[in-house]
């Protein structure tokens, strides 16, 4: 990799070998990630069925935390796919900033709209 290719500056700034092939996850890592994603997806479905199945066992407290649980599990899957499969973790931080800014605006607006419609206005 010669120093004069255009990514050279960016790479130097990162101070790492992020662009080198061995810094990318290997196929084995990708498969491990897929297994983690599978486990989380199964966890989501299991969590959905827990409260009603186990009411007799005093687990009804689970119902109120169900929605946050789904959101957190989905967020974890989201971050894993974006970070590893889309290489955002290893790629130039410019892409992270572009994507992150749009996501921030989208989430903020969506939250505000949902709050306004559901009368969550204190």
């Amino acid at each position: 990799m010669s120093r004069d290719y255009p990514g050279a500056d960016a790479e130097a700034r990162h101070g790492s070998t992020a662009h080198d092939a061995h810094a990318h996850p290997t196929p084995a890592t990708y498969i491990k990630i897929a297994v983690i994603l599978l486990i989380i997806t199964i966890a989501e479905v299991v969590v959905l069925y827990i409260p009603s199945e186990t009411e007799g066992f005093g687990l009804t407290w689970f119902q109120p935390v169900l929605i946050p649980a789904f959101l957190i599990l989905a967020a974890i899957k989201f971050v894993i796919v974006v970070g590893y499969y889309m290489h955002l973790k290893f790629d130039d931080s410019f892409f992270l900033r572009v994507f992150g800014f749009a996501l921030l605006i989208a989430l903020t607006i969506a939250t505000a709209v949902i709050a306004l419609f559901h009368g969550i206005s204190l």
Binding site: E44, L48, Y49, S52, Q63, L66, V81
Partner: peptide
Amino acid sequence: DVVWIVIFAVVYLIPYSRIEGGGH
């Protein structure tokens, strides 16, 4: 794919968990 992750949680799981009687 990532969009489907969000849809699966927000469109399927959450509304389903809120219907009367939980997950039945």
